[in-house]
């Protein structure tokens, strides 16, 4: 029973990280890159506006940071909940 409680706690912590990460994922690409671009148009960046940068480069950099953060955090979470690979 204990084991399964531990596993449930682990899973809900994981789901929380996934939700936060995907929210950031969506905001930088669909948000800043596309839908919110008009709102960011006042911020100029290298001959154009910040939204253009997010659409062509910024979102990619954020994606990278997200994956590495998640991998690091999850490997730590595996350990905390004792579900890591021996």
């Amino acid at each position: 029973m204990n084991d399964s409680n531990e596993e449930n706690a682990y899973w809900s912590a994981n789901l929380r990280f996934i939700k936060i990460s995907l929210a950031i994922w969506a905001v930088v690409s669909f948000g800043f890159g596309i839908l919110l671009r008009p709102a960011l148009s006042g911020i100029s960046f290298g001959g154009t506006d910040l939204g253009f940068w997010f659409a062509q480069q910024g979102s990619i950099l954020v994606f990278l940071a997200l994956i590495f953060f998640y991998a690091w955090r999850m490997n730590k979470l595996d350990h905390e909940h004792g579900v890591d690979e021996e």
Binding site: S29, A55, S59, F63
Partner: peptide, 13 residues
């Protein structure tokens, strides 16, 4: 650019 890189976030998570 966004589509072919953003998919890796889904894949990893």
């Amino acid at each position: 650019l966004m589509g072919w890189t953003g998919g890796y976030v889904l894949l990893a998570l």
